[in-house]
Amino acid sequence: MRQITLGKEGVEKNIIQTLQEKSGVRLSDCYQCGKCSAGCPVAFAMDLKPRQLIRLLQLEQVDEVLKSKTPWLCATCQCCFVRCPNEIKIPNLMEAVRQEAKARHIIPEKDIDKFNNLFLKNVEQFGRSHETFLMGFYNLTTGHLFQDVGCAPKLYFNKKIRIRPHVVKNKSGVKRLFQKTIEKGAK
C-alpha cells in the first residue's frame, strides 16, 4: 500500500508547476472519471494508468510519477485527449513527464528511449525515417541483435524496406527545423 503524507513543507511544488506549464495541462481539471484509462490501447502494460498518474501528480507524488513506465509506454495516439470531458492534453503531459524524468536521468524504459533517439537522429539526417537503418541500429544499440531479423527478407522483397536511404528534397530545411527546435528548447 502506497503511503502519502500531505501538508508537509517544502514539497517539490515547482516541478508540478513546470510540468503544467510545459504541457499546458491544468492538473486540477481532472475529476478522475477514468475515461482516458478505459480507452488507452497500451494501458494493459502500464504500471500507472493515465488517470492514476494524474491523481498522483494532484497529490504531488512527483517521485513515483517520474519513475513510472507509463509516460514511456504512451504511444501518443491522442485517444485519451479526444475523449477527455475536460479536454486535458494527456499526451502532452506524458511528454513533459518524460522530459523531466530524462533530465534527471530517470529512464525506466531504456530501449524505448534509445528508439526515440535513433528515430530523431534518422529524421535529422535524411529528412525522413529510414527503416533499415533504424531497425539495424536499434538492434545493435539495444543488444537484441536478432530481434525481428527474420522479417527482413520478406519486407525487402515486398519493397517495404530498402538498403539505400530515401532522402527528401530539402534536407537542409529539415536540419534547420531541428536546430530551431533545439534552440527554442534551450531557452
Partner: peptide
C-alpha cells in the same frame, strides 16, 4: 503543533497522512 489526520485516497489507492 500539528494535527495528524489519517485517511485513505481511494482514487490513488494510497493511505494518506495529513499534517495540518
Amino acid at each position: 503543533e500539528k494535527l495528524i489526520s489519517l485517511g485513505e485516497d481511494t482514487l490513488s489507492n494510497s493511505n494518506v497522512t495529513l499534517e495540518t
